[in-house]
Design a protein around this nucleic acid. Sequence first.
RNA 1: GGUCCUGUAGCCGAGUGGUUAGGCAAAGCUCUGCAAAAGCUUCUACACCGGUUCGAAUCCGGUCGGGACCUCCA
Length: 495
Amino acid sequence: MSLKIYNTLSREKEFFIPLIPDHVGMYVCGPTVYSNLHLGNCRTFISFDIIYRYLVYLGYKVRYVRNITDAGHLEGDQDEGDDKFSKLARLQKVEPMEIVQKYTLGFHHVMQLLNNLPPSIEPTATGHIVEQIEITKQIITNGYAYEVNGTIYFDVEKYNKAQPYGILTNRKMDDLLEGTRELGGQNEKRGRLDFALWIKAKPEHLMQWPSPWGMGFPGWHIECSAMSEKYLGKKFDIHGGGIDLAATHHTNEIAQSQACYHISPANFWMHTNMLTVNGIRMSKSLGNGFLPEELFTGNHPLLEKAYTPMTVRFFMLQTHYRSTLDFSNDALQASEKGLKRLWDAYEVLKQLEFGSELLAVDVELDAKVNKLINECDEFMNDDFNTAKVLGSMFELVPVINSIKEGLIPVAAISAETLSLLQQKFKIYLEDVFGLQKSTANNELLNGVMDLLIEIRKEAKAKRDFVTSDKIRDQLAETGINLKDERGGEMSWEVY
RNA sequence: GGUCCUGUAGCCGAGUGGUUAGGCAAAGCUCUGCAAAAGCUUCUACACCGGUUCGAAUCCGGUCGGGACCUCCA
């Protein structure tokens, strides 16, 4: 079975066939680094991280490009506005690049905590001004852009006569025009839907570059066209981003590429759905965003406690990437416990060894285990259905625990099946889903715990429950859970 | 207003027309010196009204509710 991906462009799942066999070029729209990213932003980057990891698992050589937007993002919909970096920089009396540096570092830190792999290339808009100017020039040459007082606009209505402008989100030009606000008298655009490729800078503007049209800065959409072309070519396999970018940003990217190179940039357009709070989209403008830091510290009115980055990651894995996901303390609480159950079973599984005893293999169980394991790949191949994969893995948890408890003999499943089970759990939990153990134990603590366990065992052997309970209770107070195993062994974990 | 998406048990959420998704919570039992963990069992839902079909949560139509995009936002 081969991979199928839902393509926004066709509005259906299509078999994924890369342009160059065994190679995948993937471009994902990254953050605009003028503020902290919230959990909704994180969701998109986690989703694409898992997609990236799965493509690698399938054996593709993936070039994953995710940009950093550090220039030119306009405030509001008035094209004569300030860019976000200049505005903030003036407000805080710092260099625009100080803003960029601060939030880029913050972004990378959060990505690392969430265990997202770094992309292959992470280009910045300010590092590609030349390329953006070149594309703009070519679009003008091709007749799809015009200059007004040093600002270059893309002529949407003219473009729409050659190519369907609203193709990505299935919109007709007339409908789009209807939904647009009236042009203000001072507006210099020819058409309501026209957008800026290059914007003339006022003299006091902090970030500006020379261009054939005077000093200015790039429009928002042109950077992605320029950088995706530079690193992935005029046509590449996958272009991704949040679904909120589809109607405007990605629609304009397609128009720019078509107007410049006469080709639609990506074969597959993938869009991740929004994270909501009480059913409403988490967004910067609404101010209902949770910062990752608030979550990791529990410092938020809607949270009862802190949650680890891995809990957040797991929480998002339980939902399909194209569904909205509602964020709440209860939902996170459930994820925390679910992840623990699954991860504990994984730790148990790693320790299981196939014995040499010649017990009859439970054919039915063996077949069931194999089916559940093999389904994982099928579910992922069906447009990355992580939720179904987790469902299968959870069904395997009682099997693993029962083997450990001796309720099912190890030899009930074949050595081959056990080995496959161990391999697949490792591959999915660690390599594809990118989960990792939340608390690291150190050698010193291990030694101390060995001693305490020994003392407790001795006390229990003498039926000295006062001492044995004291050890367990006081460890519990310091945050360590000591558990009596079947057969007199003891294990422990940090809460 | 236009273009879409969506409504699943206490909560979160998968669901290809016919088979118990799964997680969390809750209850009972087993195990245990007592716990915790684990195992077993129970809770079997698909907004509403029609239609198609032998059969629909799943397809079609309508009604009502929620949301997204159309304007900066992953």
